[in-house]
Amino acid sequence: MKTDDFNSPDFYQIDDLLSDEHKIIRSSIRDFVKTEITPHIESWYEEAIFPEHIVERLGSIGAFGPYLPSKYGGAGLDYLSYGLIMQEIERGDSGMRSTASVQSSLVMYPIFKFGSEEQKGKYLPKLASGEMLGCFGLTEPDHGSDPSSMKTHYKEEGEHIILDGSKMWISNAALADIAIVWAKNEAGRIHGIIVERGMEGFSTPSTHGKWSLRASSTGELVFQNVKVPKSNILPNKSGLGAPLMCLDSARYGIAWGAIGAAMDCYEAARKYASERKQFGKPISKFQLTQKKLAEMLTEITKAQLLNLRLGQLMNDGNASTYQISMAKRNNVNTALNIARESRQILGAMGITNQFPIMRHMMNLESVVTYEGTHDIHLLILGKEITGESAFF
């Protein structure tokens, strides 16, 4: 097993701006990653295994819905704490963070924000503890960046609805106990529906052949005349704005998580550069190596400051969709570039699983696409800047 001796870069002394509680939370999650994820992640990844036991373990450390009130199983933490949790988990692996991110922001969040008290009491405590796992169904085979054109729909039939359609590229799908599914009613209005495993006509085939997020469970959601009680419809918000609010919360977590992956790559490259010798001296003495490391640390520091301020805005309830888009787009792109530059420093060793860099790089190729592609977030920002939508 590998020894995980990770030390987080903090060039601008951002720790001085965190509370003792924030640092304790981060330390506990970092210790969890060092003992429960890092020693095993390379074999899970190589064998394309999602470690099912990790769900209850993540629940036990409070990684699911930590910002929710304690009455629903959360810890009542702030958004800076949530960001730090996502950062540390993705430092271990993007797939592990995806599991926590989906559970928190795309399953628990909509139930908490849009659900009835009965729905909150029934599902949230079990989701928080990891007793239940959830997934989020928005993306369809023909509609990714354009969710408003979704085809999944339902019609009313007495005290039930009949749901038809499909979703794809769904994290947690194959193992999820419930799915938060977004579908159009007969009037074309989008609603969120809680679909439970075991409902007749509901299936979740797994997606195979991935070169990215290999330690994450990905699949489809297929609905063939699925009979769902009307009481499973989320009652307190409808329209496309509802799932987009969930995505804002998830994208915030991604902005933090991606920098966790970036820091892991940077630290691996920095340590390797001091140990690897060429032409009679460590490669850390060469100008181009120092240039790469200096640029990596600069970009990590900028992203850390971006996350810190965004977390403060989230805590105050003042963070906009556009600000979240900027952080998600910038930080994932930054992490991907750092992974690539780190791999260059390690040379051929960088492609092996003796180091985490190639795994992070392949994972980040998914993270840069999901929950709003790099270019879609650019156009979201463009709309805010110009007042003109490029989408239609």
Rank of each mutant, 00 (worst) to 15 (best):
R343S: 05
Y82R: 03
E384T: 08
L381T: 10
V367H: 11
R276K: 11
I351K: 15
L313I: 06
V368E: 06
Y370Q: 13
M96I: 08
G372M: 09
H53V: 11
K120Y: 01
S212N: 11
N7F: 03
E384N: 14
Q103H: 04
F50R: 00
L379C: 13
Y12K: 06
H40D: 11
L310A: 03
K383L: 13
K113V: 09
K71W: 01
Q312N: 08
S8A: 12
V55C: 05
D10H: 02
I300L: 02
N232Q: 15
S274Y: 12
G134F: 05
S94C: 13
Y123L: 09
S148C: 08
E275C: 11
M245H: 14
M1Q: 07
G144P: 01
Y266K: 00
A258K: 00
E186H: 12
G62Y: 01
A261V: 00
V228H: 00
K23P: 05
Q344M: 13
K302M: 14
T152Y: 00
I180S: 13
M199C: 08
T298M: 04
S148R: 15
A390K: 13
L378R: 14
L308V: 08
G311E: 10
I324M: 12
K120F: 03
V226H: 02
L247P: 00
V222H: 05
S98T: 14
T218E: 13
M132V: 05
F6T: 02
V102L: 05
I49C: 11
S19C: 05
R340A: 07
P282M: 04
S217C: 14
D93C: 07
